[in-house]
Design a protein around this nucleic acid. Structure first.
Lengths: 219, 219
DNA sequence: AAACCCTATCAACACCGCGTCGAGAGCTTC
DNA sequence: GAAGCTCTCGACGCGGTGTTGATAGGGTTT
């Protein structure tokens, strides 16, 4: 069961003990190696040995720092997710401040930017989700957060009369959030039918607006 | 390089020679075993040995019939894709017959049904795409087909004045088609935020209509 | 019927990636 | 200077993949 978490002494559950000697650099070196390699090739083509060598240690020694390759990636994803959540906070304020269209665009742009700036990690998250229950759970929570926020916005707009009624807000939110995930993923990989880096936001925003307001012109 | 195609004597590129002896049943047995197991568990948890045993042969003998596990799955996906393409033909006629809203719903329903009826295979396709270039290419062509059809519909509706202008038809089509893929995938796996089996169509149709017509009420 | 060939089969092998075990080496620190 | 940490790695076992070589049987050719 190559999953993750179980930890040697004590810590957040992933890495190692709290903190201390110089070997702490090694942990960082492993994480940095992983981030670097993920920008070059998919997770499935990176082995524990690659991570160990990249950090200047042997494969068994790697296991002193992390219980598995998945655990390393999960740690990295965790950080990305936290960073993305911060972006969201910002955008939400704007949305609440009564600028739905500009706010929405800003929110989608921030989200896109957060993942775009760590392309490799984002793709690794999608890949890991397929085989790793912890990754699935983590991503699930992330999605749930965005869905809840989106649904709240839709409901707010409906009850102030700016958006027409229709399918349940939460259901629309789920589809929209999943659309963004898939569209962004395609753009990052550059797979065959995919949106251009510089058009993706315009297209997503238009679909969100039309879906929420029934038309691209609110009210 | 565990990819596929290279074939022993001559055939479609995947399986074996044209046709002949009794060992032909074996080939079918392998394919059937794969389909059966894929309804039970993900591709990554199925080994060549599982397929061989399921077909009543040893692992080396499996390699007489297929060059790899991937090749088996690609063959199966190929068939599903062909079946789905047929559904699309049907729905396109309806769309062309001047019933855009009913036709669109029918098209999405047919597509959903085609993949729903082979849930396991559909999920395997998504999984294989991540690691196998042939699968990526195949899926890419499938998506391209749907995108082209969708874009054509949008353009037709715009030029007859039923749909308002907006982002380029092809760009909207890409996002919509990818949304469907992701939303359906989520529904099939039952992952955490996901649409209910029986709500998914209503939601997708509403988003498509609003995106294309600017409102859920055409014209 | 013996030689030959083609289909089909599998035991045994080589390889790779993962994760573990046990034996240290180098530091404190008492 | 012995005990006790942190850190390191050689060597192992496991499970998966794909290949090799030997072989058995049916189908023809001669």
């Amino acid at each position: 069961m190559p999953t993750a978490s179980k930890a040697k002494p004590a810590s957040n559950g992933r890495g190692r003990r709290a903190a201390s000697t110089s070997g702490d650099e090694r942990e960082r070196a492993i994480l940095e190696t992983a981030e670097r390699l993920l920008e070059e090739r998919p997770l499935s083509e990176i082995s524990v040995d690659d991570l160990a060598r990249g950090a200047g240690i042997s494969r068994p020694t790697f296991y002193f720092y992390f219980p598995s390759k998945d655990a390393v990636v999960l740690t990295i994803i965790d950080r990305l997710v936290v960073a993305a959540a911060d972006s969201r906070e910002e955008a939400l304020k704007m949305l609440a401040a009564g600028e739905p269209r500009a706010g929405l665009r800003q929110a989608l742009a921030d989200l896109y930017g957060a993942f775009r700036s760590r392309r490799g990690v984002s793709l690794a998250a999608a890949e890991l989700r397929l085989t790793n229950p912890e990754a699935r759970e983590l991503w699930s929570q992330v999605m749930e957060g965005w869905v809840a926020d989106t649904a709240a916005v839709i409901e707010a707009e409906r009850s102030r009369g700016a958006a027409p009624p229709g399918q349940p807000a939460r259901d629309l939110a789920i589809a929209l959030v999943q659309m963004n995930e898939r569209v962004q993923y395609a753009t990052f990989t550059g797979e065959s039918p995919s949106l251009d880096e510089d058009r993706v936001l315009d297209v997503l925003v238009e679909i969100w607006l039309r879906t929420i307001y029934g038309t691209a012109e609110p009210s």
